[in-house]
């Protein structure tokens, strides 16, 4: 990616764009880019957070590991998004593990410098608060989904939200990723997809899950 394209992608970040031109220049001068291969670990939970990580290209998974080694994906991030924001701004350790899903080019932006900008630039601080508040709202929705709705409704919601989201060429979601996101098992996802197929809400067409009756799926999703 050339520098103009990188700048354009950086400007779409929820709070980077609120830095002054001089601050942006200083930040990029003190940052470095790293390349991670698929499955390569980027961060480990509990370690000191020295950087805010910004994805120039590729994608990563942010996940927790249970005592028996099962992986629970908290969030997936792609080009233009950052991760480990929480630890950078509260000064605590990395709250989760992060690994690359595909070959990824990622920038490490120094946490100390970002914290100093917060003291100097109120618009930047306000943008961070807004981004973190949106994240709180997102996790509140997650808690609502987990506590109020069964697997069938959660899966129906997931399918609708994925289909309504920006489609990305050649993207795909696996049964395992759906299970991790919905806090259930891959077997349960398969059973529930079969049930939704039998009701006539969805159809499988090779690698596509096609929503053929959106009204029915919305009613199952309790939307």
């Amino acid at each position: 990616m050339n520098s103009a394209a990188i700048q354009k992608l950086l400007q779409s970040h929820p709070y980077y764009s609120f830095l002054t031109a001089a601050e942006q220049k200083r930040l990029l001068q003190q940052s470095r880019t790293l390349i991670f291969q698929a499955e390569e670990t980027i961060l480990q939970e509990g370690e000191e957070a020295q950087f805010l990580w910004w994805i120039e290209s590729g994608s990563v998974k942010i996940f927790k590991l249970s005592a028996d080694g099962n992986e629970k994906i908290l969030h997936l991030a792609g080009a233009g998004e950052s991760f480990n924001d929480i630890a950078v701004f509260d000064g605590g350790p990395n709250p989760a593990n992060v690994a690359a899903l595909t070959t990824s080019q990622i920038w490490a932006l120094p946490a100390l410098l970002l914290r100093s900008f917060m003291l100097e630039n109120p618009r930047f601080s306000q943008a961070i608060i807004q981004a973190l508040a949106q994240r709180v709202r997102y996790f509140a929705t997650q808690i609502e989904n987990l506590t109020l709705y069964g697997v069938t409704a959660r899966l129906a919601r997931f399918l609708l939200q994925q289909a309504e989201g920006d489609s990305i060429l050649e993207a795909g979601v696996t049964r395992k990723a759906i299970a991790a996101y919905l806090a259930t098992t891959p077997e349960s996802v398969s059973r529930t997809l079969r049930t939704l197929q039998e009701t006539g809400a969805i159809q499988f067409d090779r690698h596509r899950i096609i929503i053929v009756n959106a009204a029915l799926l919305r009613s199952i999703a309790m939307i």
Partner: peptide, 19 residues
């Protein structure tokens, strides 16, 4: 980030096959 489910950009594939 918004409240919608994050986009699943898990696998960039040139062909759709079991992994």
């Amino acid at each position: 980030m918004n409240t919608a489910v994050p986009r699943y950009i898990t696998l960039m594939r040139t062909e759709w096959l079991p992994k």
